[in-house]
Write a protein that binds this DNA or RNA. Structure first.
Lengths: 140, 140
DNA sequence: TGGTAATTTTACTTTCTGGTTATTTAACCG
DNA sequence: CGGTTAAATAACCAGAAAGTAAAATTACCA
């Protein structure tokens, strides 16, 4: 997965990991305390912590038999900066997401209904505006 | 992966996908045009687009045999909001990330050096502050 | 009607992820 | 010393991701 930003986003793409970061906002703590709210074994949490650590989102110390974890949010700054560039785009086409979610919901209930088989009615309608530069030359 | 936020972050955790979003900032375009900069086949790009679509980050139309893609940044808003909560944490412990990166770099070069075998000197040093509530009772 | 272009789908492979149980390491404590 | 506690590691597994090549779909065009 190579680059730093990808590692950061990948680390955030898990609700357990985000919850762990949330917990760490209120102060450094031990692994078992972090694990407690979750319905999973310690090694699983340990792996999540390793992912967070490799992303630089947490730092770990050692205090006798405990390995306290503390939050380090700086990689989030980089992520936030990346997202910032898109700020001027949310706001226009605002409801496209909602339409998307609606469609998802429909698709879901449709898939729950057997025998429907996805009617072939998906034609045109959206995107009548401009053709995307057909560029006849350069078949490549 | 279930939840919406995880889906969004997962979609962002790939440089190809982020580049596609970047390209889409300068306007809607066709799949083959999107694919052009990348050293991968069309089906691969098609899959990336599907990931972005399922995350609600792009919308797709149909114009004859083209399926133009357009950017929809609204899910990024949600992601940005989540990250915002951590803003007050970057800034303190600023250099923890840099230390982390340095350690990574060291580990890398160390692993390139055969016969070193990781000297046992990793004790204490960091985290002398407060023990994380040893809580003697409740063995559980 | 047949050809061609754009894109998706299918089928398959490889690698990564998130979880498990069982074992090991490290440090405390009596 | 031996026992207990905190955590990591090892070995394993199922399922998702990311890629490929080849076939199918869809619509234009002569």
């Amino acid at each position: 997965m190579q680059d730093h930003l990808s590692t950061t986003f990948a680390a955030l793409a898990d609700p357990t990991r985000r919850a762990i970061l949330g917990r760490l906002m209120q102060g450094e703590t031990s692994v078992s305390e972090l694990a407690e709210p979750f319905a999973m074994t310690m090694p699983a949490v340990s792996k999540h912590l390793k992912v967070l650590e490799r992303a630089g989102l947490i730092a770990r110390g050692r205090e006798a038999q405990w390995r306290p974890c503390r939050l380090n949010a700086s990689p989030l700054k980089e992520a936030a900066n990346w997202i910032e560039d898109y700020r001027r785009f949310w706001g226009r086409h605002i409801d496209a997401l909602e339409r998307h979610l609606d469609r998802m919901k429909l698709a879901e209930s449709a898939s729950k209904t057997p025998g429907v088989k996805r009617a072939k009615k998906t034609r045109a309608g959206a995107f009548k505006a401009r053709a995307p530069k057909p560029r006849k030359g350069r078949s490549r």
